[in-house]
């Protein structure tokens, strides 16, 4: 016993060092799965409050750029409305009866989306996994696994929530691939090319698919995102000789460097869908 105590006294520093490093490694290992971020993350209330304060200061300087992005988004929505109206008119003339849109189009509502706005109070692009902190939390109805989009395109997914803040893992993350599809419906995962905050890669697309530069890549409806949200645009297509597959490089639709406002999208059927899929496994 005496020897043991002497041993501890002699190597106390080394033992303390190893213990602390093991604690750190446990923390790192816990967060390797996306679910474990809760414990130490920017959604905790003190960190969130500090970021909020900081954001209030820099907020003013970004107003001009934000106005532009809002205008662009408005324009896009207006165009969509105009397109919709014309389409309805065409349908009416074909049928040649006074139908309303709701009579003619048979839409199956299998997903119901609720949009909530949120402001980005912290944002990073330089790590291997990048997180965004937003100023909405469980008090505003934000839950885990909700999709986050901006006016321009897909942003990420909520991973941890406190009362007034939430952490979002962005598309620019190694451990968060997203399900994407090309214009002709070919789908596959899109991952981030580490270190380049505006480049995403879609691997292993078969050679038959014809892809041109500027083609848009959008979300599918079998991930947590709503369908047809723009992820990015193709800027380079590469043929991999080894397995004769194509690798597509995308520019992200969202500029992650000046993200200001985002929408948190709740899919009211997501839980049911996930439960069902879980039951099959």
């Amino acid at each position: 016993m005496r020897n043991f105590i002497l041993f501890i006294r002699r190597f106390f520093n080394l033992i303390l060092f190893i213990t602390l490093e093991i604690v750190c490694l446990v923390l790192i290992a816990r967060t390797h799965a996306v679910q474990g971020v809760d414990l130490i993350s920017s959604s905790n209330s003190m960190v969130g409050a500090l970021y909020q304060k900081q954001n209030e200061v820099v907020y003013y300087f970004e107003l001009k750029r934000m106005n532009d992005s809002l205008l662009n988004e408005n324009k896009k929505l207006q165009e969509r409305i105009v397109g919709q109206q014309q389409w309805e008119r065409v349908k009416d003339t074909i049928v040649n009866r006074g139908f309303r849109a709701s009579d003619t189009s048979v839409t199956l509502t299998y997903a119901n989306f609720i949009y909530r706005t949120a402001r980005v109070i912290n944002n990073e692009v330089s790590n291997t996994d990048n997180y965004i902190t937003i100023n909405r939390g469980s008090a505003d109805g934000i839950k885990k696994n909700m999709a986050v989009i901006s006016g321009a395109g897909a942003v990420g997914k909520v991973v941890s929530v406190s009362k007034h803040f939430a952490s979002v893992i962005s598309v620019l993350s190694e451990k968060q691939p997203i399900s994407a599809k090309l214009h002709d419906g070919t789908f596959g995962p899109v991952v981030w090319e580490i270190g380049k905050p505006d480049v995403l890669i879609m691997k292993d697309v078969s050679q038959e698919v014809k892809i041109r530069r500027g083609d848009s890549v959008t979300t599918t409806n079998f991930s947590f995102f709503p369908e047809n949200i723009l992820i990015g645009r193709v800027f380079k297509v590469e043929l991999i000789k080894k397995n004769s597959m194509q690798r597509i490089y995308l520019h992200t639709a969202v500029n992650f460097r000046n993200l200001q406002y985002v929408y948190v999208v709740e899919n009211t059927f997501l839980q049911e869908k996930m439960d069902l899929e879980e039951a099959n496994k």
Partner: peptide
């Protein structure tokens, strides 16, 4: 806590 990297900076 601020960078969302639990443990890495501490290590």
């Amino acid at each position: 806590a601020f960078m969302n990297t639990p443990g890495i900076h501490a290590f």
